[in-house]
Simulated assay, not measured.
Amino acid sequence: MSRARCPRCARPLTHCLCPLIPHLSSHTRVLILQHPDETAHALNTARLAALGLANAELRVGEHFPELESELAGREAWLLFPGEQALTVEALAAGGSGAPAERLLIVPDGTWRKARRILHCNPWLASLPRLSLGEGLVSRYRLRKAPGPGALSTVEAIVHCLNTLEGAGRFDALLLSFEALIDAQIAAMGEATYRRNHLGETPAD
Rank of each mutant, 00 (worst) to 15 (best):
V158K: 03
E134L: 04
L13F: 05
Q84T: 14
K144F: 08
A203C: 08
R195V: 15
A191E: 15
A187W: 03
G166E: 02
V60N: 14
A56C: 08
A49E: 04
G73C: 13
F64M: 06
R3T: 12
L79I: 14
E38P: 08
A4L: 15
T110W: 13
R129T: 09
L132K: 05
L53W: 04
A203G: 09
L79Q: 10
L51D: 02
E155M: 07
S131V: 06
R129N: 08
H197M: 11
H197L: 11
E70V: 06
I105T: 02
L161I: 09
L103P: 06
T28I: 01
L78Q: 07
V137R: 14
I117T: 11
P22H: 09
E200N: 00
L17S: 06
H63K: 10
R59G: 01
A167D: 11
G189V: 03
L175H: 15
F170I: 02
T153W: 07
E83L: 13
H27G: 05
R102Q: 08
V154L: 15
I157S: 01
L91G: 08
T14F: 08
L104W: 00
C18A: 03
P7L: 02
P148I: 05
R116N: 14
L51E: 04
R129I: 00
R129Q: 12
P128C: 07
M188P: 00
W77P: 10
L78K: 09
R59H: 12
C160I: 04
P65T: 08
V154N: 06
H159Q: 13
V137W: 11
L86V: 05
S96T: 14
L180T: 02
S25G: 09
I157K: 10
Q84W: 04
V137H: 11
A183C: 00
L31T: 14
P146S: 02
P148E: 01
D37L: 12
Q34N: 00
L78W: 04
E70C: 15
H41C: 02
E101R: 15
P7K: 12
S69W: 13
A150E: 01
H35C: 11
